[in-house]
Design a protein around this nucleic acid. Sequence first.
DNA 1: ATGAAAGCGCTAACAC
DNA 2: GTGTTAGCGCTTTCAT
Lengths: 341, 341
Amino acid sequence: MKKKTTIYDIARELNITVSTVSRALSDFPAISDATKKAVVEMAKKLNYSPNKLASALKSGKTHIIGVIVPSVQAHFFASIIHCIEDGLKDSGYRVIIYQSNESVENEINGVKTLLEAQVDGIMASMSLETQDVSHFAEIVKQNKPLILFDRVHEDLIVPTVTLDDFKAGYMATQHLIDRGYKKIAFITTVHQIKIFNDRIKGYKACLTENNLPILDDHIIFGGLSIKDGRFGAGRLMRSENKPDAIVAGDDFTALGVIKKLKEIDETPPEIGVIGFANEAFSAYITPNLSTIDQHAPQIGKECAEMFLKMIQQENPYQNIEHIVLDPTVVERQSTSKTLPG
Amino acid sequence: MKKKTTIYDIARELNITVSTVSRALSDFPAISDATKKAVVEMAKKLNYSPNKLASALKSGKTHIIGVIVPSVQAHFFASIIHCIEDGLKDSGYRVIIYQSNESVENEINGVKTLLEAQVDGIMASMSLETQDVSHFAEIVKQNKPLILFDRVHEDLIVPTVTLDDFKAGYMATQHLIDRGYKKIAFITTVHQIKIFNDRIKGYKACLTENNLPILDDHIIFGGLSIKDGRFGAGRLMRSENKPDAIVAGDDFTALGVIKKLKEIDETPPEIGVIGFANEAFSAYITPNLSTIDQHAPQIGKECAEMFLKMIQQENPYQNIEHIVLDPTVVERQSTSKTLPG
DNA sequence: ATGAAAGCGCTAACAC
DNA sequence: GTGTTAGCGCTTTCAT
């Protein structure tokens, strides 16, 4: 194992000291151009690559920020990450990604790993399982920037970037009503997550405001996945109060709903279906899926900006902001009852 | 900014030395149980979190391995990553992900970042743009394990995990022939990437073996994306030698092809369409897409195992293996000409 | 069973 | 414009 070149090797070759090398490499004004040039050339010649570990240990800054998401496979999160990277790269920050796969245990592990790796800050969207948030509280205790996005938790007093989920639930429901549907069901997760609760509240508020009844057996608490969508749709269509439209907790669930409906010959838009998140596939399935767009790119952008603000303050938490974005309805075939199919 | 507890704080509180603390924390046999217990308790009390940077600097091992992929949004890569994590976690290795977004520049940056972060090894699948591989050669020069998967490059003498892409191209073509298609076109990337070249070779070999002509204007060199698929399909269907089936470079491209075909009322399986990769959406579009499954989980598993082998050897490259997996045809509606639609 | 001390590679305050 | 030196937090060899 040939060992790596360090600034000591460069210094030795050039008969100067490491401090000069260090300064030359970081383009110090006080270093002569000749020395700089010599150092840079020698560095290239010796194939020098800086050991960021050492400099981070010394300076206390890794310039790495960790992002914890349930899964990168959802286009929504992948897109947010991309925009975080984008918003941060000019400031020299790199992003590393940690997936919780919707498990608290993984999430706890993620926080631990990132903290031990001395990241300069963490951005996270919580797993569906997460109830206790003490692992996240630890980040705040260390006075490191923590920003929560989308799936946030009220116990944590930290900056957040979210969608107005009450409005999202309301809009999805109102859209169905506008399209002529009257018996609207809702499939959501059993987990007590703020954003999902807010959506239900929006759904209920919208029904009430339109003088439609809120029926307990029109609200299915289960999981969010293709499988859960199929299951929920099956249960709803077999019930006494058969709905004529379904709001699904996310686009994956909506996809399951559609598959089930097609199997039992109630192909949308006969039964209206709308999802949340505007996943990549939603425009391509048949019938293509109406959905609530959650503006992932903007969420990412806001997170990046917020982080930059936080590290500039002496105390990152001296000025806690909560950014709330507005959702948008994306209308497609699956809710086009009153339109030509 | 309250500063973090270190092993010095623990040592001071307990009136012992840092070496004892360090040993106690890493469960040295020579340390008395009483001391261990005291140390662990004090660590918890002081909210101690180890600084991996420092230990990595000292030990030269970060226990982090970097994975560079074109994009995590492709289910294929996301799935591989997941299986790499899985295969490595018992050995205490963590994975960090870097996306090249199909750009060499990002890829070069990724290698640099990961190397500077002192990762213990790198696994990569190259961007479509990559021709020159000197940035990867640098990893080998540092004698760090590098494993290439799927999109590999012949100039790099490193272990690889790939699919038999010749066979994949052959199988896709043969499948179409078996289903009664005779004029089979092929859409692929302009970039000179081994796996794509191999697929074309397989396609040509299969045509020849079935006594079918190889037509130049049946092979479209462009990009791989929904848009490119639409474009390629349009061009093929307008040509003199209108094909009756299309092999698309990946499932995204195949999706574009299908969309275009539907628009011009040549809905598959009238024109057969097959893709590569078995993306998550492929089963859900209409008609659902036949594709070549590339066994992502197994690729990930093999990468993890190979890495573990490499680091156990004094020289990681003393025994270079090339693992080649067999593809599988996943038959769905888009190629079901001779079957009930 | 535990302590003393050197050193991983780098930065930066302080000299000259 | 450049050298000297201490130290970031940890591991580890050599003592005791």
